[in-house]
Amino acid sequence: MGHRAVTAYVIRRCLQAIPLLLGISVIIFVLLQMTPGGPMAAGEGAATQVSPEQIARLRGRYGLDDPLVVQYFNWLGGVLTGDWGSSFDTGRPVLEAIGARVPVTLQLTVVALVLSVLIAVVVGVFAASRQNSLVDHAATGASFIGLSTPSFWFGIMLLYVFSFQLRLLPSSGLTDLRARHTGFAAVLDQAEHLILPVAVLSLMSVASLTRYVRSSMIDVLGQDYLRTARGSGLPERTVVLRHGLPNAAIPVVTVAVLALPELFLGAVITETIFGLPGMGRLFVESADLRDYPVLLGILLIAAVLVVVSNLLADVLYGRLDPRITYV
């Protein structure tokens, strides 16, 4: 297939996502209407007391007497041009406030995703190729347990063991503020601070991806082409890793991409437990302060991330499976 076909497909899928994004924007607009002060307060960037006269003046200025539809499109126009309002708390533009918190969350999420995929592939493939063995039962049981463990509980108990009892790992923050490490020591220091958060954040995705890899691999292992490969005299290792794994990986890649927004959501809990200054923590802080513009901004970003991940998963699936043609 040519690049043009792929490009056309991607463009078409993007266009198909537009109604979805519009739907999301409607819901967020509805939530915005529910906030005390509504879009006006959000635009003004202050939660201070206002007199009735001021409100009347502001209503006019923000077009709050316009029909809701007009208001919606005005608001949507603002969102599309980067005007997401200002934080009630700091007065900073919402996008700027969120932007400052992105790197931490991104780092956490990406490390957790990579780690989850690596562990899931190794354990899942191993379990699948020894189906119903002790190892397989252990892996299946462990992933079931992982799926049922609330991450916040896991986090607290990890902190108790590794930070309070063993005093091996730091309990919060991203760097050791007292030590002021530089160079390699700083990297090491940050890695040390990330071990527990990444463990907590990955728990769920490791468990679910392992289950997925295992069942996908078992499915592939029963396929006739693996029998063909065995019948050609290829050793089992080659059969499983060269013929089996690439086929099993196709659906797994899709699921791994879809795990991205899940991890992003999970970061709320993780960042709260470990006091990390990421977007998730910002969301909880803003919730405490009732800083609605920031809350809605993060919500919008998260929703767009879900849509984009879905899109990416679709496109990747098509790229990886040669049977899929873009018509």
């Binding site: 065995r230 050609s232 690439p246 086929n247």
Partner: peptide
């Protein structure tokens, strides 16, 4: 089993009835 597997190819070989799944679809 390893020795037996090694016979497949140069000594014994099998032609299967074709179906979409007899050959690896992604290679």
């Amino acid at each position: 089993p390893t020795k037996r597997r090694a016979l497949c190819g140069p000594e014994l070989a099998m032609v299967y009835q074709d179906s979409m799944a007899v050959l690896n679809p992604t290679m």
